[in-house]
Design a protein around this nucleic acid. Structure first.
Lengths: 351, 351
DNA sequence: TGTTAGCACTCATCCCTTTCGAGTGCTAAC
DNA sequence: GTTAGCACTCGAAAGGGATGAGTGCTAACA
């Protein structure tokens, strides 16, 4: 498929895309022939453009307008043409530095990542907090809050903490809770929460005694709760900077959808297992994103993929830069989280 | 000041405001004379409108347009004219019901409140989480997380829970932490955090021994952290529904400001001590809000004002409905929080 | 055979004018 | 004090060139 296009066509296509990314205006043959990297007359270029249009890489808003890249063109561009190293060492250094200053809490790091991501790219950024599914228990506290409810605080080996309100059966007293949490701390530390729930709990049943059902229920709801990954969105309003969204109705429907939030976690969870993913226009499932491109990247802590982040922008986004920035951010975030969370990486490897 | 306007002028002004709130279009004399509640000819109305314009209650976009209410008019309307009981018992019941279903966590209740508030009014809603400044300690856990950091989990008598990452001096071991938290639980329960920090700590110093400084520092940073009130915003994009924001640049600058978030906490903390506050157009400090009105209301748990919420909309917002809804929401939220948090109200009163 | 100049043609955009109508203010009559 | 009548204002919408960026095609050139 690559060889469908000769070098010259490739160059012209790249030039058109580069130009269009910058200006959002249809690109004409004269404009192109003025560029230094293309030494052809407008007429020749027109012939090539005509071919490219026929091949589906270019589109014409109307007869007497310039050409606009099609989604197929962006796809080709992303796969084969763009130069990825659009990010300087300085910028990379800046990202790392800036992230490492925020040493306090995971949530803050995620927020800061989202802010930087949107700040550097000038698109909407989306960053998912790391999931704890495979984290190992380090400490559990059950703190009585009121009749019928207790707060479960879980610290994992990755240093992440999570507190969840649990319902507690009527009969259970504060002493019971203390007993249970003591037992849990003695026996369950070092296991994955899912392991505890599925594997270990049955073995421990007799030892726990009459409260076994309570514990099981608590673990179940904990399990569910730890699976939830929050999502930080920054710069949604930046979409209004682009002429693509100069129509208020369009802007509104996009922003509402972002605000609802459901789309976002879908978008981020779609690329499990993949390192980096670029979805262009209609490649997105969500119809609200059909004029957008979404670039997502997963990040790892201690070798394990624990979350992802991404950028949402118009289809004519600066893919090269975005991909480079995301690569860098993913790496930095991974490092920062790993180091922040201390022992995380070592303990995670022994199965 | 009220008596500057006779009954007829008042009626006309109210009619104009009502109409303008609905349509956002300048109101003319003919339109008014067609209304059932005004039995005057257009010419007569024109005379009155001319007077009202001279008095500063109406403005004319241009000579041959209808009249638009001025901010002064809205002020008068809010203070003297509007009928407040714009909300039916059914709606009030709906609000209460809907909130009470969300019994799990304070954060969820706040989110749901914000969602409903924006849903019912169709404006942007802003809801602050309750502050814990005067809450009394019920339980403290210090959980070692990694070298140099520990998680402090505080449960207050109001049932609110809050966890904060604390820096811990190098020398402190897990055992130390346990000892400290045990001591704190024994001696500090029932006090306000600020009391503990300022009053009780000095008295306890010797008893705590060498870790006193550590405890002091921890309490200090806890204190600061518990003072933070998060803010939930829902429906910011709804502003785009209004013709006032059909200009994308204007919409963008408004949304960016909302997204930055700082303005919001300012707006909400301005009305401490006041029950309900209406700020119209330029009455707002923030220039970004000069075309908006902000209605805020505080809410109480156990007799004490612990937070506030509000609605942001165009100056021609439906003040009557908004005020009524906010009143109801404030009451419901207070009740739900009080009941949710169990013992909250009783214990809060004994000084 | 590939490249280029020339030319007729298309069509969105800009600007100007005209028309339309909602709304006003004033005056005179009731 | 209220109202009908009327001239006047002015924004919004509709129409109509002119402009110019851009195309496709053809024929000539290297």
């Amino acid at each position: 498929m690559t060889q469908l296009l000769d070098v010259r066509k490739m160059n012209i296509l790249r030039a058109i895309i580069d130009d269009y990314i910058l200006t959002a205006a249809p690109v004409g043959s004269r404009t192109l022939s003025k560029r230094d990297d293309i030494e052809l007359s407008p007429a020749t270029i027109r012939n090539e453009m005509s071919d490219l249009t026929e091949l589906g890489f270019l589109e014409q808003p109307h007869t007497s307008a310039g050409r606009v890249p099609s989604e197929k063109a962006y796809r080709l561009y992303v796969n084969n043409i763009m130069d990825r190293a659009h990010i300087t060492d300085d910028e990379a250094e800046y990202i790392r530095r800036h992230l490492e200053q925020r040493v306090s809490e995971v949530g803050d790091v995620i927020k800061e990542t989202a802010r930087m991501l949107s700040g550097i790219t000038n698109y909407t950024s989306v960053v998912q907090s790391p999931h704890l599914r495979n984290a190992r228990l380090k400490h559990i506290s059950l703190i009585p809050v009121s009749e019928g409810s207790a707060l479960a605080v879980v610290v994992t080996n990755s240093g992440a903490t999570n507190s969840t309100m649990l319902k507690v059966p009527k009969g259970i007293t504060a002493q019971d809770l203390e007993k249970i949490s003591k037992l849990m701390n003695e026996r369950m530390i070092g296991y994955r929460l899912t392991d505890v729930h599925k594997t270990l709990l049955p073995l421990l049943r007799e030892e726990i005694g009459e409260q076994a059902d309570t514990v099981a229920e608590m673990l179940g709801s904990l399990d569910k709760d730890l699976g939830k990954q929050s999502v930080e969105v920054v710069g949604a309003s930046k979409m209004l900077d682009f002429p693509e969204y100069s129509d208020v109705a369009k802007a509104k429907s996009f922003l509402s959808e972002i605000e609802r939030g459901e789309m976002l976690s879908e978008v981020l969870s779609e690329n499990e297992g993949v390192e980096i993913s670029v979805r262009i226009g209609n490649e997105n499932d969500n119809p609200e994103l059909k004029d957008c491109s979404v670039v997502t990247v997963s990040y790892r802590v201690g070798g394990e993929q624990v979350g992802s982040m991404g950028v949402i922008g118009p289809t004519r986004m600066d893919y090269g830069k975005v991909v480079a920035v995301l690569r860098c951010m993913s790496e930095s975030l991974g490092k920062v989280l790993s180091s922040m969370l201390g022992s995380g990486s070592e303990n995670n490897n022994d199965q």
